[in-house]
Design a protein around this nucleic acid. Structure first.
Lengths: 225, 225
DNA sequence: CCATCAAGTAACTGTTTAGTTACCGGCTTG
DNA sequence: CAAGCCGGTAACTAAACAGTTACTTGATGG
């Protein structure tokens, strides 16, 4: 049609290299997609998340998303893996064995609660993954090792506490961790329905602080001799 | 094409009223849609659920679904409302005030755990609704009253326990209920990721029973003087 | 016995969606 | 300096989707 419309003006118009630094930056684009995907999957779940929305949030387009991550499912799995790496890495830095057993457990409970509070997207991703019965997580090859450290360290702290006579003999490391995680997860992830049906705004700082103390108290009460 | 193939045999063939009872049954169709929708929404969430799939599961078609429930969102809200009515109704039948305070609380904890265990679709619906920040539940006009009874009854039991000196003065009814619900909800709704990352099948009867005892133990340990 | 209305079917429609293709432009390297 | 490769764009496609329309069937009351 408009073959002749090519137009003599040099279309180049070559921008005067102001800000030479890369419009072209693979690493940044990749990271932007991953972050945008984390938010989109966390807000809408696997079924509700839109590939177009992720591309737009990342300030790029679908072509790049498929280029770097394959397809929607693989991108979702990367998001989930990164989320787990995040919490397990931060957990390791705690070194709960450095204090008294009681303080160590209290520390872990506080840390877990605060991490959940500051990373709502992590809770949301867990919810989504469980809705699908861990369909994607099960395929992950990167995560088998990641979690054993936590249970190992927790186990040592409990043993020490038993030896010192401050913890009951029946205290089990997985149960202790599940107790801590349960109390934090449910309160935060279900805050919207709970606030609605009980007519109390659970995210208000006063209630938040009360629940934080409650978690530490319940956890220790359940294992102290 | 086969206009002439109409075939002289009277098509009516009027079945001999064996089983006169309605192929036509509004109430049954309605109930079938509601049940099919409960399963579909529980399995796939709001974003992942398919209206066609619900119609097929109900053994009917989309026309009826839209006829009885308006649209997908209204159907979803009905499903959610019915789920809440289910648990709150069963809870009322417990009459936790009829026993000693300690037994009453233990009873409530056991009931809640077992109800969650037998109604995974309820947990799943809660998860979905919270992903969407209670967007639909908030619109419900039917549910304001429903939940106050639970807190009221629980409050009385706690007061009685305090008067008898078996519970600490700081025990709070909402906290007690949230504790019970947390421990049951998290264990069950997150069983898939937990079983995967910790390499232990949480749904196995042995572990299930251990966690049941754990919930009762933790709940009481947190409020006993 | 026929007029009417509710229950039910199935095919259709416009839109949204995951995934693809054809193309652009600048940087690197032989 | 040209060849080709890599980061990037935008328009396209086939399928899936929520919601609608045109139609059929059967029960009921005047």
């Amino acid at each position: 049609m408009n073959d002749s419309g090519e137009n003599g003006e040099k279309k180049k118009s070559r921008r005067p290299s102001q800000e030479r630094t890369a419009q072209r930056d693979p690493e940044r684009t990749r990271a932007a997609i991953l972050e945008a995907a984390t938010r989109e999957f966390a807000e809408n779940g696997m079924g509700g998340a839109r590939v177009d929305a992720i591309a737009e949030r990342a300030g790029t387009n679908k072509r790049m998303l498929y280029h770097y991550f394959g397809d929607k499912e693989q991108l979702y799995l990367r998001v989930l893996e990164e989320a787990y790496v995040g919490i397990r890495t931060a957990e390791r830095a705690l070194h709960i064995g450095d204090r008294s057993p009681e303080e160590g457990i209290g520390e872990l409970a506080l840390f877990t609660w605060r991490y959940f509070l500051q990373h709502p997207e992590f809770l949301s991703l867990l919810g989504t993954e469980n809705l699908h019965r861990a369909r994607w997580l099960r395929q992950s090859v990167r995560l088998k090792e990641l979690h054993s450290h936590l249970i190992g360290e927790l186990s040592q702290v409990l043993e020490q506490g038993k030896k010192q006579g401050v913890f009951v003999e029946t205290a089990d490391p997985l149960h202790v961790y599940l107790t801590i995680a349960s109390l934090g997860y449910f309160y935060l992830s279900n805050q919207y329905t709970l606030s609605t049906i009980f007519g109390r705004d659970l995210i208000e700082p006063t209630h938040l602080n009360a629940w934080e103390s409650h978690i530490v108290h319940v956890t220790l009460a359940s294992i102290k001799r």
